[in-house]
Design a protein around this nucleic acid. Sequence first.
DNA 1: TGTACATCAGTGAACGCGCGTTCACTGATGTAC
DNA 2: TGTACATCAGTGAACGCGCGTTCACTGATGTAC
Lengths: 205, 205
Amino acid sequence: MPKRGYHHGNLRQALVEAALDLIREKGPTGFTLSEAAKQAGVTPAAVYRHFAGREDLIAETARQGYEIFADVMQFAYDKGQPSALAAFEATGRAYLAFARKHPGHYIAMFESGVSVNRTPELAAVAQRARSVLERAAADLSEHIPPEKRPPPSMFSAHIWALSHGVVELFARNSPGAQSPFPPEDLLESGIGVYLRGLGLIKPDS
Amino acid sequence: MPKRGYHHGNLRQALVEAALDLIREKGPTGFTLSEAAKQAGVTPAAVYRHFAGREDLIAETARQGYEIFADVMQFAYDKGQPSALAAFEATGRAYLAFARKHPGHYIAMFESGVSVNRTPELAAVAQRARSVLERAAADLSEHIPPEKRPPPSMFSAHIWALSHGVVELFARNSPGAQSPFPPEDLLESGIGVYLRGLGLIKPDS
DNA sequence: TGTACATCAGTGAACGCGCGTTCACTGATGTAC
DNA sequence: TGTACATCAGTGAACGCGCGTTCACTGATGTAC
């Protein structure tokens, strides 16, 4: 029950949500502090009670995004257990699902130009997200004969890159325009071929 | 020998190059028409003799980028011939090489928000670039038994996405900060695993 | 070879705009007594 | 329960700035005769 009036009640979070809307609709470039304030029903100057400035507001939306993202990845990982393979595939799928479900957060995180090393908190939560995928990769690499086992961080990077590329090129309207295939199928099949290449699933079918 | 003076000589191209510099150094957001004009040694108003406006200038830099990109891809494809495999791998590598060598163009093409469908010329040259990779994929798919052959456009999309993801996440300073591996190695090994998954190179080593 | 003239690339001043940010303030809220 | 007061979230006016864009202009260039 946010009591509106002279005092807003929860302006900080309202500004984050306004920022998310604007970033989603107009891109990180189109986002302005003034408009976010306006959308939250408040004077631009009021923003400075809660944030150091424009960049700081974007960084906070990114931070919240990484928080959700890390949770989502962790949830996918847990759900795939005890199968290392299922857990790994689920985290890949979770990446795309996150981008779809939280486009504002996604853009703030990956397309706004905010550095992940801007603050210690931001760096920490980004690391948390990354480490889920790395753990999934490490679990999976146990199933590869040691002598031909690539470093887990390498194939987590491959999957991260593939997922990111699919999102950027085919799941957002931006550059390549229309996708030849549904992004979900593209990612699923790409990961499938890749895991087959590692000898982790049967070459057959 | 550009004769300087009241008349610039080749302002149009000088503006494109100024734009490339600025985009590379400050990102697409940081690019301003006024600064590009200044860097070319000219009044902002002069820009309008050659371009419809700011967006039009960015679009032209992107167009020139796609032109180079398509040439580079074509060259890599030709160089890999007559081996379908070599040609395919070379185009993948060319993607990353292009991003490294022409960062300004790359950003204008993929990160500036300019739609590839903005003008017919832009759409055409982007299609030309894409079709090189698709042809390489189609050649390669000839070597897969027809009954388990995925559509060529699907695996060209996979490689495109992987390449793009590697560039965005690991070859540019932006979000993930430092890469665990050199991007070239990451892409090379990723493509290797992928092609093994398609049964196109020996599972052994 | 010299002159008159058309062309048009660049000038420079001006514009309106919305931005991010600052500042002294005000008035709602909550607490101490 | 009522009053005095401290707190501090939000106001509103103002700022300087650089932006993209326009406009009437000017002067260098090249061509016709």
